[in-house]
């Protein structure tokens, strides 16, 4: 076969595959936007739901999701980053540490409903936190830990070995070396993992189903021990459990959830860009 032709066919196949991935995503976005945009208004965003969720706003669900994401990040990022530092910088390369690393990678593939059940067993029942923001945040936090540990590990491992050697040769201790010449250069990568975790924590329904989410609670949570509404669960409820919800309210809710995740991601991406601009090698 002619080389030029071969080249064209290969190119077309690759292009087609990319198109097949991108187009459905665009279609989803367009449908959600077209059907949901009419529901968006300041009232929709900042009011309580009324009349059995058929009218009013979704403010408690928005706020609830923000609380849950924030709680999950506060819990999972320090824990995940610190354990990644231990795994990369301190633990010796032996059978045990390899099993631990493998287990962490595999934990990322555990279905989210299993994390939900785990959270129910540990936080809600055993530790007695009840169905609360605390239980939900911790459950989501545990769910995103593997993502954060794995990407933090990759970020730490990608920092050139020479940075550590130079630092040690200048008389820095191991911890000073990590603190001053490894961690700052790994931050962009660690933030990437945090972004991924963030998006996942905001969108998951199953882990919050048993641990925090309220079906219909038209008031704002007062403490971390309160239940709250949350966007993904609210979307599930109004789409399948309650008849008579206007279509634009359902799509509007989906649109808000989508935008919330995008805004959170954007903030993290801007932050990461700022770090990258400063540190380059």
């Amino acid at each position: 076969m002619n080389v030029q032709l071969e080249q064209k066919i290969a190119f077309s196949i690759l292009f087609l595959c990319t198109l097949l991935v991108v187009v459905p995503v665009l279609i989803i976005l367009v449908i959600i936007f077209v059907k949901g945009a009419s529901a968006l208004s300041l009232n929709f965003l900042f009011e309580m739901p009324t009349s059995g969720m058929t009218a009013g706003g979704i403010f408690p669900a928005i706020l609830g999701t923000l609380y849950l994401v924030l709680g999950a990040i506060l819990f999972a990022v320090p824990l995940g980053v610190l354990s990644a530092i231990y795994l990369v910088e301190y633990s010796r390369d032996n059978a045990l540490s390899r099993i631990v690393k493998l287990a962490i990678v595999n934990l990322a593939g555990v279905p989210s409903v299993v994390y939900g059940l785990f959270g129910l067993g540990i936080f809600v029942l055993f530790l007695g936190f009840g169905a609360s923001i605390l239980s939900g945040s911790l459950t989501l936090g545990i769910m995103i830990l593997p993502v954060i540990i794995t990407s933090s590990r990759e970020a730490l491992e990608s920092v050139p070995q020479s940075f550590r050697i130079v630092s040690l040769s200048l008389g820095a201790s191991k911890w000073q070396t990590i603190r001053h010449s490894v961690l700052p250069h790994a931050l962009p990568g660690i933030l990437t993992g945090t972004i991924l975790g963030l998006g996942r924590a905001a969108g998951e329904t199953a882990p919050i189903l048993f641990t925090v989410a309220a079906f219909y609670l038209p008031k704002l949570p007062q403490s971390v021990f309160d239940q709250t509404m949350a966007l993904p669960y609210h979307l599930y409820v109004i789409s399948t459990q309650v008849p008579g919800i206007p279509e634009n309210v359902r799509y509007g809710t989906a649109l808000v959830l989508l935008m919330l995740v995008l805004i959170l991601n954007l903030a993290a991406i801007i932050l990461r860009y700022q770090f990258r601009k400063r540190k380059k090698w």
Partner: peptide, 16 residues
């Protein structure tokens, strides 16, 4: 010890 003995490496290796 490493403050008393400095080391210069094969490839110039400034931090970024």
């Amino acid at each position: 010890l490493r403050q008393k003995i400095g080391m210069v490496f094969q490839r110039p290796n400034p931090f970024p």
